[in-house]
């Protein structure tokens, strides 16, 4: 991150999707020299250099919040246009069409995928460190251990996205990437030095887009 220090700190707009875990995301970004700000403003989300869509909790409540803040269209457009965006945990799931967690609730629909619950053969929620295996080289994602806290997941990757796999009751999507858009089912901000390095690579890519 030494290159970043030569320029003004990168302002990262973190979408306020609720209380939980926001502090960890903000602290993780600050440790890397970025300048996080919290926002619910559609104009800010539309024009920001870098946006983080965090979120833990329920799919339905998350979408309700995005709808109430009129963020649905701007987030869809950002991701579709490939502008630097990081979705974390529930954030990844909100990008999908719908989720078994909240039947009848429409997601952002940027990813042609449906979020499903882990099978009952494993402990749910998945809480802990799981190995992340990128399915191709040369992207932002590298092999390592990441911290997960989720009951729902994608069981296959949508076409047109690079992805990393993990196993919990069968393979599932640990993360997706396309250009400067990174969507992680795990929490990079809680994944030690490996997660910090991933966040750093995403920030560097977002900084390049400035």
């Amino acid at each position: 991150m030494s290159l970043m220090a030569l320029t003004a700190p990168l302002v990262v707009q973190v979408v306020r999707t609720g209380v939980a875990n926001i502090a960890s995301v903000l602290a993780g970004l600050r440790r890397l020299g970025a300048e996080p700000a919290l926002t619910e403003d559609p104009q800010t989300v539309a024009t920001a250099t870098a946006v983080v869509l965090p979120g833990v909790g329920a799919f339905g409540a998350g979408m309700e919040r995005l709808r109430a803040s009129e963020l649905v269209t701007v987030l869809r457009e950002r991701v579709a246009a490939g502008r630097p965006t990081l979705a974390v945990c529930l954030g990844l799931q909100l990008l999908c069409e719908r989720s078994e967690e909240s039947p009848g609730v429409e997601g952002l629909g940027v990813l042609p995928a449906i979020v499903r619950r882990f099978p009952a053969t494993v402990r749910v929620p998945q809480l802990g460190w799981n190995e992340v295996l990128p399915q191709a080289e040369g992207g932002l994602l590298e092999r390592g251990f990441a911290y997960f806290a989720n009951s729902y997941r994608l069981d296959s990757a949508p076409e047109g996205w690079g992805w990393a796999r993990s196993e919990h009751g069968g393979p599932f999507v640990a993360a997706l990437e396309r250009g400067a858009v990174l969507a992680c089912q795990f929490h990079p901000e809680l994944s030690g030095p490996w997660g910090a390095a991933l966040l750093g690579r995403w920030l560097a890519r977002a900084g390049d887009a400035r």
Partner: peptide, 14 residues
């Protein structure tokens, strides 16, 4: 009921 209140607001994983 406090468990349900916390889980509903912040998620079971919290």
């Amino acid at each position: 009921a406090v468990l349900t209140q916390i889980a509903t607001r912040f998620g079971a994983q919290c």
